[in-house]
């Protein structure tokens, strides 16, 4: 076995690409959960985003319009979830699961004629001079714009949640919706906004998968990325910066696993494909072992139905 075939720089680059869809979906879900809503439909919204982004990009030959369409598609799907859970007061867990199943089926239907096509390529944003630096250049300064955007989005969400009045209100709604209501905040509309944002982020994550990372449309191509995004939110204990750590850790294991397969290690590929998920479970068990700490960060109203009549 020749480990020297593993180039750390290219590993790092592909790690970031692998992590970005999950990171985008996770940062959206973090905002949703901070507002006290548990949307388990991330996987469904991602795959709808993947096909919507892919199809629109192919039709318009413009990846950016495709990504925009993916965000709209994800948000629309999320708003269906929002309507059912916030206005019709249905159970969030069941509705979220249904959303995932619906999204997977819907995407497969929409995507039939797009299988095997090639999407328009997304240009790289090579920062002059800096991107020519050895090692640092390719890792930090030579990516497609979406990678920078995903990091900027995490920073933006952190700033919003911790430094603005709007973020404080959002956290308050997630912490105690009855109290927020009695102070005169519109719990349902704030949550609908968060749910739409979460859907848009998940849709964008899906589009990144079908337009940049793979880039191709295959049925069921999200392959559990939405679930990993959900897990990473808990892993990050609802702190935006830790999402990056979680997503890159996951991306790292995925990439390493792929490379090890390519090297022909004598372990079945099935086991290697399992590792990212296994690692996620192990990390989550370790993280949640300390119940006191984890429960302080968890939004107290998470998943609870809000009924304004009392």
């Amino acid at each position: 076995m020749d480990f020297s075939a593993l180039n750390p720089v290219s590993l790092m680059v592909s790690l970031m690409i692998a992590a970005t869809p999950v990171l985008l979906a996770a940062v959206g879900e973090l905002v949703v959960e901070k507002s006290g809503v548990l949307n388990l439909g991330v996987e469904g919204m991602m795959i709808i985003g993947a096909i919507a982004g892919f199809a629109i990009s192919v039709e318009t030959s413009n990846p950016w319009i495709g990504m925009l369409a993916a965000m709209v598609a994800g948000a629309v799907l999320a708003l269906i979830f929002g309507f059912i859970t916030q206005f019709l007061l249905s159970n969030q867990v069941a509705t979220g699961l249904a959303l995932t199943l619906f999204g997977l089926g819907m995407a497969a239907l929409l995507g039939q004629s797009y299988t095997g096509m090639k999407p328009p390529s997304t240009p790289h944003l090579d920062i002059p001079v800096l991107s020519d630096l050895p090692v640092v250049g390719p890792i930090l300064f030579s990516h497609d714009p979406m990678i920078y955007m995903s990091i900027a989005l995490v920073a933006g969400v952190w700033y919003f949640l911790n430094r603005t009045r709007g973020g404080l209100i959002l956290r308050a709604v997630g912490e105690n919706h009855d109290a927020a209501h009695s102070l005169g905040y519109n719990v349902v509309m704030i949550r609908m906004g968060a749910i739409a944002f979460g859907g848009a982020c998940a849709g964008l994550g899906g589009a990144y998968l079908s337009l940049v990372r793979v880039p191709q449309w295959t049925e069921g191509m999200t392959a559990g990325a939405g679930w990993i995004a959900l897990a990473i939110v808990v892993f990050a204990s609802w702190k935006p910066w830790r999402l990056i750590l979680g997503a890159y850790l996951f991306g790292g294991v995925t990439i390493l696993q792929l490379n090890l397969q390519a090297l022909g290690i004598g372990i079945s590929a099935a086991y290697l494909s399992m590792t990212p998920y296994l690692i996620t479970i192990i990390v989550m068990v370790i993280m949640s072992a300390d119940r006191r700490r984890a429960s302080i960060n968890a939004p107290a109203s998470l998943g609870r139905i809000f009924n304004a009549s009392h």
């Binding site: 404080l168 209100i169 308050a172 912490e175 009855d178 109290a179 927020a180 107290a300």
Partner: peptide, 16 residues
């Protein structure tokens, strides 16, 4: 029943 948020601090509760 106080309309307070346990995980937020005093000042944040007052701002709200």
């Amino acid at each position: 029943h106080f309309s307070l948020f346990e995980a937020l601090n005093v000042a944040e509760n007052i701002i709200l």
